[in-house]
């Protein structure tokens, strides 16, 4: 059963088709890799799936419900969370606060008068320990190295326990091998929990290692979708991507 389905999603930027009638399904409890050359529409697709960019035409189905317009403030309620190609943290805040702000009280009155709850502390610690940043919890986010910033963003989505769909936009880019192992384990853990993981990635080795399904995009169009073995065997895929 799919968690997200798109029907004929189209998006143009100044006359250029970033997405051109893309129809696909993100299966539940699987890791789906999105590959394709630069400018093929991968990030635009993830931006549409997370409400950052509004499609010009086409419909989304999230958890079986039709959603014609997805706004950023509705993304969380639909159980979707994401990371960004260019890391976006709450720079003014400490590492711990970057996580606490995600797991804490939403009601204004309660958030004004209640101190941190034990549950929040526990969940924040768990997320930071998973990516190895607990020791850095008091550092300002702005003071972290590039790799640590990527890991903190991943910890932030991990802390969102109610999410069902995790969108990662090039999470391995610029990471040391040890950090890559951490992120691989995070994704495998999410899959074991039955969550859906969508991953934009250029490394074919990581795609083969992690993904159950691969979506190949080229010039805004969906070129192929299937298991890594079947997709990477297709001549058109070899021609536009693997063969390069």
């Amino acid at each position: 059963m799919s968690t997200i389905k798109t029907e004929n999603i189209t998006k143009q930027f100044e006359g250029v088709h970033a997405l051109d009638g893309v129809s696909l399904e993100i299966p539940r409890g699987r890791v789906t890799g999105i590959v394709g050359p630069n400018g093929s529409g991968k990030t635009t697709l993830v931006n549409v799936l997370s409400g950052i960019v509004r499609q010009d035409a086409g419909v989304l189905h999230i958890g079986g419900k039709e959603v014609s317009i997805l706004k950023p403030q509705q993304v969380n309620a639909h159980g979707i969370t994401r990371t960004f190609q260019e890391v976006r943290l709450f720079e003014q805040m400490t590492v711990l606060d970057n996580i606490l702000v995600v797991v804490t009280e939403r009601a204004v009155a309660a958030s004004l008068f209640r101190r941190r709850q034990e549950r929040c502390d526990r969940e924040a610690r768990q997320a930071l320990e998973t990516v190895g940043l607990w020791e850095k919890r008091s550092s300002p986010a702005a003071a972290l190295s590039y790799g640590q910033r990527k890991l903190l963003e991943i910890a932030r989505v991990l802390a969102m326990r109610e999410a069902e769909v995790y969108l990662f936009d090039e999470p391995f880019a610029g990471l040391f091998p040890a950090m890559v192992d951490v992120v691989v384990k995070v994704m495998q853990g999410l899959k074991q929990e039955g969550k859906s993981v969508v991953l934009i990635e250029h490394s074919m080795d990581l795609i083969r290692q992690l993904c159950d399904t691969v979506i190949v995009m080229d010039e805004g169009k969906l070129l192929a979708q299937g298991t890594p073995e079947t997709v990477f065997a297709k001549p058109e895929v070899i021609a536009i991507y693997v063969g390069k």
Binding site: G51, P72, V75, R82, R88, F90, R106, V108, R156, M160
Partner: peptide, 9 residues
């Protein structure tokens, strides 16, 4: 924008 995505009203 990120605040919205992580569920902050």
């Amino acid at each position: 924008e990120v605040s919205k995505i992580v569920g902050i009203n």
